[in-house]
């Protein structure tokens, strides 16, 4: 029982740091000068949100909810590849 108390206390303390870094990523998404900065910030936001989902699944004691973290990480990576393909195709053709 004290193990559960230790885990929930430490993870609850760590949540505001996650929220602060999400806020910094969102500021870079909003004010980024070029398109690549915004895509990079969305990429990092998605990866860290997947890690946050894993932590939250331990905190909320629902182990079956972890499957959405893998899906989010893989599909945010796909957005990166789409934009890179668009930027390259205009110069190289195809």
């Amino acid at each position: 029982m004290e193990l559960e108390y230790l885990v929930s206390t430490v993870l609850t303390i760590l949540i505001p740091f996650y929220l602060t870094s999400f806020l910094l990523y969102i500021i870079r998404v909003v004010k980024g000068p070029t398109l690549s900065d915004r895509v990079l910030a969305v990429d990092s936001l998605g990866y860290d949100l997947a890690a946050f989902m894993v932590v939250l699944s331990v905190l909320l004691k629902a182990p079956l909810m972890i499957v959405s973290a893998l899906a989010l990480a893989l599909w945010v990576y796909a957005l990166d590849i789409y934009v890179a393909k668009y930027l390259e195709a205009r110069e190289m053709g195809g």
């Binding site: 989902m53 939250l56 499957v67 959405s68 899906a71 989010l72 599909w75 945010v76």
Partner: peptide, 26 residues
């Protein structure tokens, strides 16, 4: 759509996240 995925996750619906994320982010 990423924010919506977090909302569905918080509201304890991971199956809807599993369907919503490929459609809306992919």
């Amino acid at each position: 759509s990423t924010a919506y995925a977090l909302m569905y996750y918080i509201l304890m619906a991971p199956d809807i996240v599993l369907v919503y994320v490929p459609v809306s982010v992919g």
